[in-house]
Design a binder for these strands. Structure first.
Length: 564
RNA sequence: AGGGGUGUCGCCAAGCGGUAAGGCACAAGACUUUGACUCUUGCAUUCGUAGGUUCAAAUCCUGCCACCCCUGCCA
């Protein structure tokens, strides 16, 4: 069966929603799959959002449909205008293209208002003048029914007059609401005459002071979905209890045969990661991090700057799936797996020595070119040139005076291969006056040149190096998790009263210098490299012409364990 | 007179009456001019629990138990 260019019969449903969509399509109930991505413009997006948006977009894409990016801006107190651009950018980075950018306030407030008036005339809504405290006190409890508002039985004419008075500014903030007339004894508390409109005099970033009444989410959202033609309105699990209300508004407000459906998926959280706009905002404001795009942040602009790829993020959130509980928590390693997997395929290999130890090749003069594969797993990536010469630098940790068992690197009197160059033998350790190693004196073995080795020598280890004549200094930024390891659920700890300062790891950002091969001089911001045997690095935007700054995106896995 | 949701390996997660997929993590080994990658192998006699129905139950029924969400004029 062909449906909007998609062969429905070939689709393998990956969750219950998709099964339902297929059934709807086959039953002729759904003509097009239209979803919406409805951020409240009050903060930058983070990885958990990416999970939601990937569900919104990928579901539509799978069925040849489309997705609207809709600013859910019904609360002027919390929203600001600056975010729409960042959302478009994040979406583009993830590879998603919304059908259209819509500001709910601008596009739908007039229609929503009209629907409210109609509901009043239908006897489905009434103006209530109870105070917020009184509404709360009469709502009942989890086990007891609520009490009906004394204003509940006004006539539609009275209600309409009062509602227009609300709109016209004749009520002070908080002095009146429009409420849906449902059932104060309903076991689902959301159905106990929920507020549809409140009086609120706040400057709206988009509409200014045009309105002094604003619709509540529960009313506005289904109306926006319906007005827009959305067929599947996907949100997170905590709205499950709101679904009957959503359907009630569709039935009593929208009143047309076509109806959008709300369906719910699990929210994503990651162990040891602080997610949640209000906390992220606090850390930025209090100067604990360097802005919303700090590489230690789980924001999309943060992980992008750190060097994570869009593919890694998408693969990761997809691996978590739809979910059927409120919140699904996965360990950070689950994310890291996808970051390494993608970077391994695309990152260019380079040699960088983070902690240099000088080595002098006593039996070598001059210099010669060597070649390094840009990516040994990908022949098409090509090679680049590096240099071997008399004076080189190796990693301090690649030489040991007291090697642990199974240490494959350089030891006194031992041999090791220099990546892409020769096998060398350490003849002498030269100490400085302070007792530290000053440098190593080694000899190279001539017929062991990489790719042309006729020596037959078996070498256990290969280490990376840079040549003194072919390196320059760069800045490296290394990150530890922002949150101390013992706080697996930092948001919960904060909600339980732990101070934010207490959960923050100290020195989660460390800056150091390193020696990079000259090949890296041309690196541009966002270029991604694998510093061989160390990790993946990405050029940071703080780089200057004479100072390249690399963010350590993630380390390489290291299965070498020092035995006891 | 509470309502809604969930319980399958440390973590995610398939499973929809026919005898427990897969991924992450972990462990062992092979390969390796990155101790990376890759590759092999191992990792739930059992599905919250107690009964019942059936030739056959994670799947159906009943009773318990545990956890999560809901009492904003936030979204």
């Amino acid at each position: 069966m062909n449906f909007n260019g998609i062969d429905i019969d070939s689709i393998v449903p990956e969750n219950e929603l998709e099964e339902e969509i297929i059934a709807d399509i086959k039953a002729g109930k759904t003509k097009e799959v239209i979803t919406r991505c409805p951020p409240e413009p009050s903060g930058y997006w983070h990885i958990a959002h990416a999970k939601a948006w990937s569900i919104d977009f990928d579901t539509a894409i799978k069925f040849g449909g489309k997705t609207y990016l809709r600013m859910d801006d019904t609360n002027p107190i919390k929203e600001e205008g600056e975010f729409a651009d960042s959302y478009m950018e994040d979406l583009a980075w993830l590879g998603y293209k919304p059908e259209k950018l819509i500001y709910a306030s601008e596009a739908y407030f007039d229609d929503i208002y009209k629907i409210a008036e109609q509901m009043i005339m239908d006897g489905k809504a009434y103006v209530c003048q109870l105070t917020a405290e009184e509404v709360s006190a009469t709502r009942g409890t989890l086990t007891e029914a609520g009490k009906e508002s004394p204003y509940r039985n006004r006539t539609p004419e009275e209600n309409l007059k009062l509602f227009r008075a609300m709109r016209d500014g004749e009520f002070e903030d908080g002095k009146a609401t429009l409420r849906a007339k449902i059932d104060m004894a309903h076991p689902n508390i959301n159905m106990r005459d929920p507020v549809m409109y409140r009086v609120l005099r706040a400057h709206h970033y988009k509409l200014g002071d045009k309105w002094c009444i604003y619709p509540m989410y529960d009313f506005a959202h289904p109306m926006e979905d319906a007005l827009e033609g959305v067929t599947y309105s996907l949100c997170s699990m905590e709205f499950r209890d709101h679904r009957p209300l959503y359907d009630w508004f569709i039935e009593n407000g929208w009143k047309k045969p076509y109806a959008p459906k709300q369906r719910e998926f699990s929210r994503l959280t990651i162990e040891n990661v602080l997610i949640g706009k209000r906390y992220l905002k606090q850390l930025v404001n209090e100067g604990y991090v360097n802005g919303w795009d700090d590489p230690r942040y789980p924001t999309l602009i943060g992980v992008r700057r750190r060097g994570y790829t869009a593919k890694a993020i998408k693969d990761f959130v997809k691996s978590v799936g739809w979910g059927n509980v409120l919140e699904v928590t996965v360990p950070y390693s689950a994310l890291e797996y996808y970051v390494r997997e993608d970077l391994n395929k695309i990152a260019t290999r380079a040699m960088v020595v983070l902690d240099p130890l000088k080595v002098v090749i006593t039996n070598y003069e001059g210099k010669e070119e060597i070649e390094i594969d840009n990516n040994p797993n990908n022949e098409n990536a090509g090679k680049h040139k590096a240099l071997f010469s008399k004076e080189i630098f190796i990693e301090k940790e690649d030489f040991s005076l007291n090697p642990p068992p199974k240490y494959n690197r350089l030891v006194e009197g031992g041999i090791v291969r220099l990546k892409g160059a020769y096998v060398i033998k350490c003849n002498k350790v030269v100490f400085a006056e302070n007792g530290e190693i000053d440098h190593l004196e080694c000899e190279y073995i001539p017929n062991t040149k990489s790719g042309n080795d006729t020596s037959g020598i078996k070498c256990k280890g290969t280490i990376h190096f840079v040549s003194a004549k072919n390196c320059f200094e760069v800045t490296i930024r290394e990150f530890k998790p922002l949150i101390k390891a013992e706080y697996k659920n930092p948001a919960k700890a904060l909600s339980e009263g732990v101070q934010i300062k207490e959960i923050l790891e100290e020195n989660s950002l460390v800056e150091r210098k390193a020696l990079a091969e000259n090949f890296l001089k041309d690196a541009k911001v966002q270029d991604k490299f694998q510093f061989m045997r160390k990790g993946y690095y990405c050029v940071d935007k703080d780089s200057a012409e004479d100072n390249l700054v690399f963010n350590n995106t993630i380390s390489l896995k290291d299965s070498f364990k020092v035995q006891k």
